[in-house]
Design a protein around this nucleic acid. Structure first.
Length: 463
RNA sequence: GGCGGCGUGGCCGAGCGGUUAGGCAGGGGCCUGCAAAGCCCCGUACUCCGGUUCGAAUCCGGACGCCGCCUCCA
C-alpha cells in the first residue's frame, strides 16, 4: 500500500484512491509572468517524482496541473512592458515548458488554463451570491469565510485565531480580513470577462477549485503544491468546495522550501535564482538528484556547493552506466515495474527500495540504498561476476528512472579525428609505446575528453 | 499574539530506543605501464541542561538559537 503524509491529518496515511488502481492528482501550477525559479523547479520535480513512482508501482495516474494565465502580476507586467496580458502569459508559458523539458518533468495529462474556465467560475460565483456565501463590494466579489465552519482546517488553526493574527487589509469593506476575492472588477483597460455581477476577472483561488473539480471530479484523490500554498490558497479552494457542497481532495501533499542561506527563496525577498539560469550552466539531472537526496517535506539548501556535490555524485552513477554500457531510461517516458524482469538479486533491491518509497516517498533512503547497490555492482564486476553485476546495475538504472533520473554514459558524439586518436592510442598501448600513448591522451584531453582505459580499449567521455 | 518546523561528523543529508545511513570532500591501501574509473580501510557526529530506560541523536521536561505560515509567493 502506498502511503503519503496528509496535511489535514498531520500524519502519513494510506493513499486510498477513489477508483481502484487509478489515482487522480492535481498540482497547482505556475502563474506565468516571469521565469521559473528554483522553487518552481523543486515542486515540479517533487510531484513529478511522486507521479512517476505511483505509475511505476502500477497506478494509472491522472495528473493535472494548471497554468494561471490571468492575474494581477501578468497585468502589471504587460502594462510595464507595453504589451498584452496574453503576450506576457504566452512568453512565460513557453519559458516554463522549455525549463520543464530540460529538467525532465513529464508533461501533465491535462494542463488547464485559467482563461479557458471563466464561464464555470462565473457560474460558481453566482451560486455563492445566491446562497449569500459571497458578497459584492466596490472592487469585486468576496467569499465570506465565516460561512465555512471548519475554515482553517489546512492551516491547523481555528477561524478566530487566524482572524486575530490577520494583518489589516486595504479594503475596509470586507466583512473579515480573511475574506478573499472570488472576482475582481476590471478597471479601465484591464482584461475583462462579462458577468451579471460585473465585468472582471477571476480570483486565483477560484481558478484552481474549478479546474481541479472540473477535470478530476468530486472527491478526487490528491491535491499537491508548495508549502506556501497550504494557506491561504488551498484553504480557500477547499472553502469554496465546501460551500458548493462538493467533496474535495481526499489527501493533501505539500513540499518544503528551497532555502538560500537561512532564508526561504521567494519572490518577495528577491533572493531567487531562475531555474532557466541554473539549467543553462548545470546538468539538469544534478538538480533532480539534489531534490531526491532529501525528503520532499524538508527544506533544501541550494547553493553552488550543493549543486557541485550533486554533479559529482551523478558522475558516479554515469560511470556505472558507462561500465556496463547501459541504455538511458526515463525522460518523457514513465517506466512501469511490470515492464521489467528482475533477477532474484535485483528483485531484492527493487523490493527494498519500493518499501522505502511506498512509505511517504522516502527518496533519501532509497537513494542511499541505490548508491549502496552501485558499490555492490562494481564490486561484483571487479570480481569478474559480470552477469550478476550487470543485472544489479540495470536494476539501479531502472529504479532511478522510476524517479525520473536518467543515468547514462555521457559519451557525446566524437568526430573522426577523435576516433583516430583513440585508435592510435590503443595501437601505441598494445605496442607498449607508453610515451606515444601518453602524448595521444594529452591531445585528447586538450580536445576536451576524459580518457579511461578498459579491457575493451580506450574509452573517452566529455570532461 | 496564534500555529508549525528545525538545530547531526569538513559540507550536504537520513535516522523515530540498541545495529555501518548514503553522497561529496579528505587520508591510507589495492588495481593500472602511468593515469582515469573502480574496490577496500579510516573519521567516530548528533545545540545545551535535567529526566525516563539496562540502553537515547531517537521518548519526556526545560533553556538557547534558527526558520516558516497567519499578506502575493511553489
Amino acid at each position: 500500500m502506498l502511503r503519503l503524509y496528509d496535511t489535514i491529518h498531520g500524519e502519513v496515511r494510506d493513499l486510498v484512491t477513489r477508483d481502484p488502481g487509478r489515482l487522480s492528482m492535481y498540482v497547482c501550477g505556475p502563474t506565468v509572468y516571469d521565469l521559473p525559479h528554483l522553487g518552481h523547479g523543486r515542486f515540479t520535480l517533487v510531484w513529478d517524482v511522486a507521479r512517476r513512482w505511483f505509475t511505476f508501482r502500477g497506478l494509472d495516474v491522472h495528473f493535472v496541473s494548471n497554468i494561471t494565465d490571468i492575474d494581477d502580476n501578468i497585468i502589471n507586467r504587460a502594462l510595464r512592458e507595453g504589451t498584452t496580458e496574453s503576450g506576457v502569459a504566452q512568453t512565460y508559458e513557453d519559458e516554463w515548458w522549455a525549463a520543464m523539458s530540460l529538467i525532465g518533468v513529464a508533461r501533465p495529462d491535462d494542463v488547464p488554463h485559467a482563461t479557458q474556465y471563466v464561464p464555470e467560475m462565473v457560474t460558481l460565483i453566482e451560486s455563492f451570491l445566491a446562497d449569500d456565501v459571497a458578497y459584492v463590494i466596490s472592487d469585486g466579489v468576496y467569499f465570506d469565510t465565516s460561512r465555512v465552519s471548519d475554515y482553517g482546517l489546512l492551516a491547523g488553526q481555528a477561524l478566530d485565531s487566524l482572524r486575530a493574527g490577520a494583518r489589516i487589509e486595504a479594503s475596509e469593506e470586507k466583512r473579515s480580513p480573511l475574506d478573499f476575492a472570488l472576482w475582481k472588477f476590471a478597471k479601465l483597460g484591464e482584461p475583462r470577462w462579462e458577468a451579471a455581477f460585473g465585468a472582471g476577472r477571476p480570483g486565483w483561488h477560484t481558478e484552481c477549485v474549478v479546474m481541479s473539480l472540473g477535470l478530476l471530479g468530486n472527491g478526487f484523490d490528491l491535491h499537491c503544491g508548495g508549502l506556501d500554498l497550504k494557506f491561504p490558497h488551498h484553504e480557500n479552494e477547499r472553502a469554496q468546495a465546501v460551500a458548493a457542497h462538493r467533496p474535495f481532495a481526499q489527501h493533501w501533499g505539500h513540499n518544503g522550501w528551497v532555502m538560500v542561506g537561512d532564508e526561504k527563496m521567494s519572490k518577495s525577498l528577491g533572493n531567487f535564482t531562475s531555474l532557466t539560469d541554473l539549467l543553462a550552466r548545470t546538468d539538469a539531472r544534478a538538480y533532480r538528484l539534489l531534490v531526491i537526496r532529501s525528503h520532499y517535506r524538508s527544506p533544501i539548501e541550494v547553493s553552488p556547493a550543493t549543486i557541485a556535490d550533486a554533479e559529482r555524485a551523478l558522475a558516479r552513477l554515469d560511470s556505472l552506466a558507462r561500465r556496463f554500457d547501459l541504455p538511458a531510461l526515463a525522460g518523457e517516458m514513465l517506466v512501469r515495474q511490470r515492464d521489467f524482469d528482475f533477477t532474484q538479486q535485483s528483485e531484492v533491491l527493487v523490493h527494498h527500495v519500493s518499501e522505502l518509497l511506498d512509505e511517504d516517498l522516502n527518496t533519501p533512503l532509497a537513494v542511499a540504498e541505490l548508491f549502496d547497490a552501485v558499490s555492490r555492482a562494481n564490486t561484483l564486476a571487479d570480481q569478474g561476476k559480470m552477469t550478476e553485476a550487470r543485472d544489479l546495475a540495470v536494476a539501479v538504472t531502472v529504479l532511478f528512472a522510476a524517479l525520473g533520473l536518467s543515468v547514462f554514459s555521457a559519451v557525446h558524439a566524437s568526430d573522426d579525428d577523435d576516433q583516430l586518436l583513440v585508435h592510435a592510442r590503443d595501437q601505441a598501448r598494445s605496442e607498449g609505446n607508453w610515451a606515444e600513448a601518453d602524448r595521444l591522451r594529452d591531445e585528447l584531453v586538450t580536445r576536451g575528453w576524459i580518457v579511461e582505459d578498459s579491457v575493451e580499449g580506450t574509452r573517452i567521455r566529455r570532461a
